[in-house]
Nucleic acid binder design. Structure first.
Lengths: 245, 245
DNA sequence: CCGACGCTTCGGCCTGCGCCGAAACGTGGT
DNA sequence: ACCACGTTTCGGCGCAGGCCGAAGCGTCGG
C-alpha cells in the first residue's frame, strides 16, 4: 500500500505532542536552541534530543551548530504550510488549564508569523490599512479554489499614493533591496482571513518593534505596548479595544 | 504546551500507515465500505474497524449506514487539503516492490481527484485545452504567495467561444445547473501544476467515462482506453505518447 | 587548565497501541 | 426460519517508542 508518497511517516513525526509543539514553535521562522525547545515542550533535554534527531532524519527540520549551541529551524516553508493545514482541521480542544487558556488567547490575539504580524492584530492591521485608504483591494476572481477564502476569493493589495506617504512619514522602508515582493499576504490560521506578508509585512513588524509599539513575548506571542495602544489607532486606524491586559 | 490547536492528535491519526492509506484512498471523494478499505490497507477487518472508529472519533471521516454496509467518507475537503499538504513535504520513498512501483507510476499518470481528472493526464489536458485555444489564461498576479505555484503565480482560465463550440460538439454540458463555478483549478500534488476542476472539470471526466475514452481502475487510478488514445490527441490535442500499457 | 554549560548517547522502565482470531450482532436473501 | 455476510467487540500478544537519569563529549569563560 501507499507506494505513492509516504504521508504516514511525516504525519507520525508531527503526531507526537512534544514534537508537534516544537514544530509549531519553529513556525515563527526563527531558529531555536535545543534547550529552549525542551522547556517549550515540557520534556527532559535528553528526551527532546531524541525527538530532534528523528525530525532531522525525517527532513522536517535542519540543524546548524554554533559554538556550543545547536540551532534548529524548519527545513522548508512547505512544512509550515502542512502544519497550518493540519491546524485548520484540528478541533479546538477543550482548554485544560488557565495558563493554556491565556496563552491560547494571547497567540490568537497577536503573534509573529515568520517575520510579520499575524493573529487578530495581523488581520485587523491589514483591514485598517485598507479602510484607512493606505492599501487598495483588487478583488478580482482568479479562478482558483481557495480552501480558506472560498471559491475565487483571491485578493490583491496595492499601495496607494497616500499610503506610501503615510508610511514614509512613519519611516517604514518601502523599497525592497532584494527581489522580495513588496506586498503579499498569507491566510491566517486562527482568523481564517488574510494578513500582510511580503517586504511590507516584515517592514511593518520591524518598525513597530523599533518604535516600541509592540514587543515579542514568549513563544510567538506579540504584546501590544501602551505606546502602540495609543499610536496604532491614531496613525493607522486600528481599533485595539478588543485587546485587554 | 500546545494549548492552541491540537495538531498532534490529528497528525497522529494520519500518522499510522493503515489509516493514512485509508484516508488517501478516500481523497478521491467517494465513500467506501469498511471491507473495501480493509483490503486496501492490507489489514484484518477487525483491525481496520478499530482504525475507522478512531478516525470517526477524531472527526476526520464520517459514516453512513446503508443496509449491512457502512460507508466511510472524508469529513471535509479541508482534510484532503491537509493530506495533500503532507504529501507535498513527504519524501518520495525508495520503492519496495514492483507492484507498488507500477501503482505509484499509474497514479501519477492519471487519477481522479474528487470528480475530475488529475495526475499527468489532468495537467496535460488542462495545458492542451489552453494550447488548443479552447481555454485562455489570464495570468494576472493576484498578490498571494502560493506555496506550489510560487509567488503571485495565480492563474485564471476562461472559456473561449471556439472552446465552447468544440466542447458542445463533444456533448460536454457547459451550463452548471447549480451555483458551482464553471471553471476552477486545483494544484496537482504529483505534478505541482494546475489541473481543471469546477463544473467543467467534472463534466469532462464524466463525458470521457461515458465515451469510454477512460475508465476507473483500482484506487483512484484512471486508465486511458484505446478509444481515448486516438480520440484525445485528435479532438483535444493531448499527446498521449507518454502513456505506456 | 579547569569547571560550567549545552547537548547527545545509553540503559532501563513502562505504557500505548497495532495486530490477529474468535465470537457476537444485525441485515438481507432465500 | 435459516444461513451468509458485513461489521464490530473482546481478549491477548508483542513491539515500538516515549520517558527519565546518568554519563560522555565538546565548547566557552575565567
Amino acid at each position: 500500500m501507499q507506494g505513492d508518497v509516504d504521508v504516514a511517516t511525516v504525519a507520525a513525526l508531527m503526531g507526537e505532542p512534544a514534537r508537534a509543539t516544537v514544530l509549531l514553535a519553529l513556525t515563527s521562522g526563527r531558529a531555536m536552541a535545543a534547550t529552549t525547545l525542551a522547556t517549550e515542550a515540557g520534556v527532559a533535554p535528553s528526551t527532546l534530543s531524541g525527538h530532534l534527531g528523528r525530525l532531522v532524519d525525517g527532513g522536517l527540520i535542519t540543524v546548524e551548530t554554533s559554538g556550543r549551541h545547536r540551532y534548529y529551524r524548519l527545513a522548508s516553508p512547505e512544512i509550515a504550510e502542512a502544519l497550518e493545514a493540519l491546524a485548520r482541521v484540528a478541533p479546538t480542544r477543550p482548554v485544560r488549564s488557565l495558563r493554556q487558556a491565556t496563552h491560547a488567547e494571547a497567540i490568537r490575539r497577536a503573534r509573529s508569523c515568520y517575520d510579520h504580524l499575524a493573529g487578530r492584530l495581523g488581520v485587523e492591521l491589514c483591514d485598517a490599512l485598507v479602510s484607512g485608504g493606505l492599501l487598495q483591494v483588487d478583488g478580482s476572481d482568479n479562478g482558483r479554489d481557495d480552501p480558506v477564502l472560498g471559491a475565487g476569493r483571491a485578493k490583491r493589495f496595492v499601495l496607494t499614493s497616500s499610503g506610501r506617504e503615510t508610511l514614509t512619514r512613519l519611516d517604514v522602508p518601502l523599497d525592497p533591496p532584494t527581489r522580495r515582493p513588496l506586498i503579499r499576504y498569507c491566510v491566517d490560521w486562527s482568523e481564517q482571513r488574510p494578513h500582510l506578508s511580503g517586504w511590507l509585512g516584515a517592514a511593518l513588524l520591524a518598525r513597530f518593534l523599533d518604535l516600541g509599539w509592540v514587543s515579542r513575548a514568549e513563544r510567538r506571542v506579540v504584546r501590544v505596548n501602551p505606546a502602540g495602544r495609543s499610536a496604532l489607532p491614531d496613525q493607522l486606524g486600528v481599533d485595539l479595544g478588543w485587546l485587554p491586559d
